[in-house]
Amino acid sequence: MATVPKMPKSWRVETKPHKFCPGCGHGLVLKALGEAIDELDIQDRVVFGCDIGCSLLAWDFFNVDIVQTHHGRTTPVMVGVKRARPDRICIAYMGDGGGYAIGAQHLVNAATRNEKITAILVNNCNYGMTGGQMAPTTLPEMKTETTPYGRDVEETGYPTQGPEMVAAITREGAYTARGTVAKVRQLKNYLKKALQNQLEGKGFSFVEALSGCPTNWSTNAKATWAFLEENMTKYFKVGEVKVPVKEEE
């Protein structure tokens, strides 16, 4: 992890090193996204919206136009941009609190309307920015600042299965997948397909990325990866959930 990574072309060099904590997964998601933007050669058309949550720290991350919106409201802001300027490639970047809690109605409705935007949601099992409270994705029994005795699923329900939910409410043409920062190449491919889907105007595209939050998990590098690769992937299945129907079908 300590090696100097090659920066995607679309990254803004002047704002590196980035502002995320050491070992944070957000940086890896944005690396995969940067590469996907480069490979599709869409840097001059991308409009990037980031939520309030640690995603806000990406407000100057890329050499693309970026707007930092409100907690949970990035999806509707990007929908608004896309409706007004269909030639732009609109990306809504948010956390699991932003997307599945406060912004859930927007995610659901944008998906239902098959809005031609790409939503990327970073699942780190907690509210990172506010210091580690329970998120909709917090695993059963997991301790957080607001579940100090462990998440009790009887009281608070089970972790949200986002891509599965989005897949269930979208029509043909939508793309949904779950990647992980433990497999950046695969994640990049999912992001690329999601963006391609928007480019082709097929429908809503949604990628959840499993990601580490060592600061609030209080984990060292090894334990962060272990939690990500064992605990999280056991509950959240990595892979494509829904891909657009092929033409020949």
């Binding site: 502002k19 904590c21 806000l56 720290l57 920015m129 600061t215």
Partner: peptide, 8 residues
């Protein structure tokens, strides 16, 4: 002091 970017 506290803020959103106090790390660093």
């Amino acid at each position: 002091n506290f803020g959103v970017e106090q790390r660093g």
